[in-house]
Structures are given as structure tokens and as C-alpha cells.
């Protein structure tokens, strides 16, 4: 197993990074759930589960692979370009960079490292969030599996919390959705890390590029709303 140089593996660091209260601004985003609720496509715990499952296997898989690749030490600029190509929606690219910038600020306070400083200097407007996440994990002494787990979990955790607020959904039911998705999440992480390891040798084309057309289209519609509860 490849481990970030220097720091020993720390499970507690993973808990700090994965904590929903980690001050990286994610709580203001619904991951497309607000648009899907408005369109009448997410109306219940069951439809939330299908929404999250679709996210997990598309943008979740891609984010997990990007984060794992960054944790393995692949050039963040190359990964950022790969993330751009996998995000056709300009609204989602802007969101990913905003979240990346916010995460980087928190990460540099928690786990200062020359690599995070260099990333901040190279991307003053923010790099794609999964790339920052992977480099943060690396700086915290975590491995690619940890980075991928954080990214994949975020891809479904954010929309679930948002939907509780949007639909006044029972929080127990909503959290049960996440628990049911856990085995699939583990499988997505495993595949994402394997792809990231291939990308070390074969370049970023080896990373998955799974897409959700309605996530992209919905994000563009959502960005044009005059009033909304969530930023994305």
C-alpha cells in the first residue's frame, strides 16, 4: 500500500476530515438535490436513495478517483484539468472550485504542508474540491483509500442532509439511506482507488468519467433561479 510520505496513518485524522462539521463550507450545497426536489424527481426516502445511488456511481466515483489520485501524488494541475473535462456544467465547475478554495483554507490550518501551499499558489481561485481533498488527506498522513472514502461519502452525505431540510424528511429515514448505500460506497471506493493507481502509470485518462446528465442540466437550471436555499 502506498502511504503518504512522512506522517503515519491516523484514523483520528480521517474522522476530523470526514466530519460534517469540518469548516469547509459543504453544508451550503445540496449536490443537485434542491433542483431534483423542485423538479419533483426526489419526493421521499426511496427516491432520495435512487438519487444518491446515481450520484455515487457517477460524480461520486469520479470524485473518489480524483481524490485518491491526488493522495497518491499525481500532479494536481493534471487532475484539475481532468476534473474540468469531467464537469461540463460551468455552474458545477464554479461550485467545485469554490468548495476547493474553502477546503484548502481549512486544510492549511489543520495540516500545513508545502504541497498545500503550492496548490494555493497555483490555483488562487481554487482547484476542484476532490483534488484539494486528496492533497489534504496526503498532508494529514492519510492514504488514497481514506481520501476516496471521504469524497464518495460526501457525494451522498451532502444531498441527504439537504433533502432532510428541503422535504422535512425524517432524519432517521434519511440516515438509513446512507447506511443502505454503505456497501456500494465501499465498492465504488475500491474501484476508484484501483483506477487512481492505474492513472499513476497511464495518465489521467485511466480515471473514470461517469456522468449524470440530469445532474449537469439540473445544476445549470438551478444556478439561474433567483431565490434558492442552497448554493448548488
Amino acid at each position: 500500500m502506498v502511504r503518504a510520505a512522512g506522517a503515519p496513518m491516523s484514523r483520528a485524522a480521517l474522522l476530523v476530515l470526514a466530519d460534517g462539521r469540518f469548516p469547509a463550507g459543504g453544508h451550503a450545497h445540496s449536490g443537485g438535490a434542491e433542483a431534483a426536489v423542485k423538479a419533483g424527481r426526489v419526493t421521499s426516502a426511496a427516491t432520495l436513495e435512487e438519487f444518491c445511488r446515481g450520484r455515487l456511481h457517477t460524480v461520486g466515483r469520479v470524485a473518489a478517483a480524483l481524490a485518491a489520485a491526488a493522495a497518491l501524488g499525481i500532479d494536481p494541475a493534471e487532475l484539475d484539468a481532468a476534473a474540468d473535462a469531467r464537469t461540463p456544467s460551468p455552474a458545477l465547475r464554479a461550485t467545485a472550485r469554490r468548495l476547493g478554495r474553502q477546503l484548502l483554507r481549512a486544510a492549511r490550518a489543520c495540516w500545513p504542508s508545502p504541497e498545500l501551499d503550492a496548490l494555493a499558489a497555483a490555483f488562487p481561485k481554487g482547484a476542484h474540491q476532490p483534488v484539494v481533498l486528496g492533497l489534504t488527506a496526503r498532508s494529514a498522513g492519510l492514504g488514497p483509500e481514506d481520501a476516496a472514502h471521504c469524497a464518495a461519502y460526501e457525494s451522498v452525505g451532502g444531498p441527504t442532509t439537504a433533502t432532510v431540510r428541503l422535504l422535512s424528511l425524517d432524519p432517521f429515514e434519511a440516515t438509513a439511506v446512507l447506511a443502505r448505500l454503505a456497501p456500494e460506497l465501499d465498492a465504488v471506493v475500491e474501484a476508484a482507488v484501483a483506477a487512481a493507481r492505474r492513472a499513476v502509470l497511464d495518465g489521467t485518462d485511466a480515471l473514470p468519467a461517469a456522468s449524470g446528465p440530469l445532474l449537469e442540466i439540473g445544476a445549470e437550471g438551478h444556478a439561474a433561479w433567483p431565490v434558492r436555499l442552497f448554493a448548488s
Binding site: 426526489v42 435512487e50 438519487f51 444518491c52 455515487l56 457517477t58 468519467a209 461517469a210 456522468s211
Partner: peptide, 19 residues
């Protein structure tokens, strides 16, 4: 770079509200 998988055997959620 865009990839879409659908139909029997495709990863879950392909016909759901996100995809």
C-alpha cells in the same frame, strides 16, 4: 470526458433522478 452506462448490469441509479 463523459461516460454513461445504462441498462441491465450498469451501475445502480442510472435510471434514477440523478442520471
Amino acid at each position: 470526458d463523459q461516460e454513461l452506462a445504462c441498462g441491465p448490469g450498469a451501475p445502480g441509479g442510472w435510471d434514477g433522478p440523478a442520471v
